[in-house]
């Protein structure tokens, strides 16, 4: 299927439109929340929370409620649990993350099997854009609106508590509260991305576009916009290849964002490895 044919399909078929809206929104919010995750050094935390929503999904199924609530509750419990272990012992933070989230993940696997849930484990783990429902789309759009609103309203507070938590605390910002607020956003974004990339790979959409943007700019708001753009480009690639060639959308999205990263890593004008090598060689030649 050519790109033109694909565009006409988007116009003609409702289910393709739903997948389009969902994946674009997922690209934007993963890109934006991912910037804060990357800058705060919480990439591992993103990985943990995304995996730990699994038991929440299973429990929601057992209780016959929308999986959204269970997943969000599990994500927040994980964030709190990790914080608790970290602050009340000498366990280092990467270890406490590993301890807590693997337990949640293991529980999730057992519960999903036990529940005979009909929950398709594969589509939760790896995403499936072709099966996006109307309710999924609305959930993603609402979550996206919440995330964007919070980031716009509290941009200043997020910036300073990320850059200099000591100053933030000294002038009275509730830095712990901001941390947990960010963990809630992270959980919401993860749950909203389940259909698109799946829980195994969502961490890539959180950290890869943000890291790519990080290589390109020295201003936070530019980084946020670039990261969102890279997220959207990756999502659109995932959308196209999953409809046109029946490939796994999550895998395509992650590979696309990786290719963008690799390109910028080597060729970006400021930080690019290639230009840096050329510049230092020129300097050395000039000196000799």
């Amino acid at each position: 299927m050519s790109i033109m044919e694909f565009i006409s399909e988007i116009i003609d078929y409702g289910f393709v439109q739903k997948a389009l809206f969902t994946s674009v929104m997922v690209g934007i919010i993963c890109g934006i929340v991912g910037c804060f995750i990357v800058l705060r050094g919480l990439a591992l935390m993103g990985d943990a929370i995304s995996h730990a929503v699994l038991p929440g999904v299973a429990i929601s199924f057992l209780l016959d409620i929308n999986f959204f609530y269970g997943a969000v509750a599990a994500g927040i419990l994980t964030a709190l649990g990790i914080g608790y272990v970290n602050q009340n012992s000498r366990i280092k933070s990467d270890s406490s993350i590993g301890i807590v989230f693997t337990a949640f993940l293991a529980l999730g696997v057992l519960l999903i099997r036990y529940a005979h849930s009909g929950v398709n484990l594969d589509s939760i783990l790896f995403g499936s854009l072709t099966s996006v429902q109307t309710s999924d789309m609305w959930m993603t759009l609402i979550v996206g609106a919440i995330v964007l609103l919070v980031v716009v309203l509290f941009y200043k507070e997020l910036l300073i508590s990320t850059f200099d938590p000591t100053m933030a605390a000294a002038y009275g910002l509730p830095t712990k509260l901001i941390h947990y607020m960010l963990m809630i956003l992270l959980t919401l974004v993860t749950v909203a991305s389940m259909q698109t990339v799946g829980v195994v790979l969502v961490v890539a959409l959180l950290i890869t576009p943000a890291s790519t943007a990080y290589l390109l700019t020295n201003r936070l708001w530019v980084m946020l916009i670039l990261s969102a753009a890279f997220g959207v480009i990756s999502s659109l690639a995932g959308l196209y290849f999953s409809f046109a060639y029946d490939l796994d959308s999550g895998a395509v999205i992650v590979l696309t964002s990786f290719l963008l990263f690799a390109f910028i890593f080597f060729f970006s004008p400021k930080q690019g490895v290639l230009w840096r090598a050329i510049r230092s060689k020129r300097k050395r030649n000039a000196a000799s």
């Binding site: 800058l39 050094g41 309203l153 509290f154 200043k156 507070e157 910036l159 300073i160 990320t162 850059f163 200099d164 000591t166 100053m167 002038y171 009275g172 990080y214 700019t217 020295n218 201003r219 936070l220 530019v222 980084m223």
Partner: peptide, 24 residues
């Protein structure tokens, strides 16, 4: 204990000093 690679320039760092009085 800040991240010296943070995407922020010198002037914007000083502008942070105006935040406390601005309020949310």
């Amino acid at each position: 204990n800040i991240d010296w690679d943070f995407p922020i320039n010198v002037l914007d760092t000083v502008v942070l000093g105006t935040y406390p009085k601005l309020g949310v």
